[in-house]
């Protein structure tokens, strides 16, 4: 199944059959991530999109081992980091960095911006104090802040400014791959444009790869090479961004793409709506997760969870119904 995910070139990040189960009350199991495969090639951007609560942040947190996966394998440039004893992880963080969804909670409130940016340099790079100070100044400017912001504490920054500090911290040690969890969600369009430009520029100059989690489909279309769409713990569609956006196949992908608002006066869009309540990730049945809400559901959809089906051109969809009945 994994071959359909495979991109050209060598995968810098490879995720195989990742699972994360949270025990919840009454001995039940919340299946947050249910067998996810991902490949990100060096210098490439893979976008991970999908319903809120579908497990995107959990995938990211498992990859960097902020939480322990329940199963699966993760390798960075051929080196396994899942499974790997926690104490051997330190060297890996030089190569993989993460920007968190919630910049407020991820910045230490007792450190000012200078200290936040200096810390990874001190931990991972052998630089002199003066070199580090220079690099810190370079970093704040790269993300469009000024040296005056260096003395500020997180609570003294606006939401967007905090997010930029998070990005500066992640790129500080020149990693190979950065996981960005909603990196631009609280930025205005002009700064968002700047940050995206910056990310693309860094990618070109440093050959950085990105795993880019976002709800902003415009941004995804703008920056990503490939996209993977998640729904309740699983990837339901994956492929080159242009193909998936032009010809979305999975009913969830179609609903998602049709819901995006357009920043123009008087434009009306036609939404493809999913019926009913969002299904729960707790003790899910062995069936397509969309079954209660899907306009195309067939009796066969309740018999087993569909896996990804290759459509050619690296496009794959986990829905036999749409594959059998082409549009």
């Amino acid at each position: 199944m994994s071959f359909v995910n495979m991109s050209v070139g060598d995968a810098i990040l490879q995720v195989r059959d990742l699972h994360k189960i949270f025990p919840v009350e009454g001995g039940r199991r919340l299946v947050a991530v249910d067998g996810v495969d991902l490949d990100v090639a060096a210098g490439e951007t893979l976008a991970l999109v999908g319903e809120s609560g579908s497990g995107k942040s959990t995938v990211a947190r498992c990859i960097v081992r902020l939480i322990e996966p329940s199963g699966g394998e993760v390798t960075i440039d051929g080196t396994a980091i899942v499974p790997l004893p926690t104490k051997r992880l330190a060297g890996i963080y030089r190569r993989i960095q993460m920007v968190f969804q919630d910049p407020n909670a991820s910045l230490n409130p007792r450190m000012n911006v200078r200290q936040v940016l200096d810390e990874p340099l001190r931990l991972h790079l052998a630089l002199s104090g003066a070199e580090r100070a220079g690099r810190v100044r370079e970093l704040v400017e790269m993300v469009g802040l000024t040296p005056a912001h260096l003395e500020r504490y997180p609570h003294e920054l606006s939401g967007g400014q905090r997010q930029r500090v998070g990005i500066a911290r992640a790129i500080a040690v020149s990693p190979d791959i950065v996981i960005l969890d909603e990196p631009t969600s609280s930025l205005d369009v002009s700064v968002r444009g700047q940050i995206l430009g910056l990310l693309l520029d860094l990618q070109q100059r440093l050959g950085l790869a990105y795993l880019f989690i976002s709800h902003d489909l415009q941004v995804v279309q703008h920056v990503a090479d490939r996209v993977a769409v998640m729904y309740l713990g699983s990837i339901v569609e994956t492929g080159p961004v242009a193909d998936v956006f032009r010809d979305p196949r999975h009913p969830y992908t179609r609903a998602l793409l049709s819901a995006a608002p357009v920043a123009q006066w008087g434009v009306k869009r036609t939404r493809v709506r999913l019926a009913g309540e969002i299904a729960s990730a707790i003790d899910p049945p062995d069936a397509c997760r969309l079954v209660g809400r899907c306009p195309m559901a067939q009796p066969s959809c309740s018999a087993g969870k569909p896996s990804l089906i290759d459509l050619g051109q690296a496009h794959a969809v986990a829905c036999p119904v749409v594959v059998d009945r082409p549009t």
Binding site: V49, E51, Q101, S185, H215, L256, A260, P261
Partner: peptide, 8 residues
């Protein structure tokens, strides 16, 4: 901002 467009 943190919501997918359908839920948004």
């Amino acid at each position: 901002t943190g919501l997918d467009v359908t839920i948004q």
